[in-house]
Simulated assay, not measured.
Amino acid sequence: MFTGIVTDIGEIIAAEGEGKLRRFRIGSAYDPATIAIGASIACSGICLTVVARGESEGRRWFDVETAAETLRLTAAGQWQVGTRLNLERAMRLGDELGGHLVTGHVDALAEIVTREDVTPDEANWGATARFTLRVPAPLHRFIAAKGSVTLDGVSLTVNSVEEDRFTVLLIPHTLKVTTWGARQAGDKVHLEVDMMARYAARLAETLKQG
């Protein structure tokens, strides 16, 4: 489990394989001595298993593998050397739950429709950015105003919803410490809906069926 609070921006420094299995080496600030083989790390919202870790040429890294289902549902098939990823290590009992409960199981790709940068009066704080995204049906029924959503591994609050579109507002800090600062209209991002919304919808469906 994760919280959607990014703790590092990693960079793919090697990529191997094609088709149904790909392996990536991700450079990060994480101390490899603290990463166990088999540990889970969320990479731009995808829960992936560490299969190797180490340090070479002064750079720390860990390796992950992506199989057919992950490649089908996510953008991992397009990752290449230089791709930057939001990273979060799995939460431990007793950790602060700063975002919301996140599984790292991507539901679909959402498309950024527009980006609007808003500069406050105190310009030295930096600009905030309002993103409008389109979510594929039928997942839009899980998106609710003031609810939570995970986008590329970042826990965000939904501002408004209209049919298959919703908006989120990112503060300057989030734009700085995640890959969202470089996101633009037309980009596709990993979407994980709030698990509570998923279970509530399923319960409602079950009650309706009898």
Rank of each mutant, 00 (worst) to 15 (best):
G4D: 07
T7C: 12
I12L: 01
A15C: 14
G19Y: 02
G19Q: 05
K20M: 00
L21I: 12
F24E: 01
R25Y: 08
I26V: 10
I26Y: 04
T34L: 11
S40K: 01
C43T: 15
I46F: 07
L48M: 15
R60P: 05
D63Y: 14
V64Y: 00
E65C: 03
R72L: 06
G77T: 10
T83R: 09
L85C: 09
L85G: 06
N86K: 04
A90N: 12
D95A: 11
L97E: 08
G99R: 07
V102C: 03
V106I: 15
V106P: 02
D107A: 07
D107H: 11
A108M: 00
E111M: 05
E111S: 06
E111K: 15
V113S: 00
T114Y: 08
R115S: 09
R115E: 07
V118L: 14
T119Q: 15
P120E: 01
N124W: 04
N124C: 02
N124M: 01
G126V: 03
L133M: 05
R134E: 08
R134L: 04
V135G: 05
F142D: 07
I143L: 05
G153D: 00
S155T: 15
T157G: 10
S160W: 08
S160D: 12
V161T: 06
E162S: 13
E162D: 07
R165V: 05
L170W: 09
I171K: 06
P172H: 04
P172Y: 01
L175Q: 05
V177K: 02
R183C: 13
Q184V: 13
E192T: 12
E192K: 03
M195D: 06
A197C: 03
R198H: 05
R198S: 10
R198N: 04
A201S: 15
R202E: 12
Q209E: 14
G210S: 06
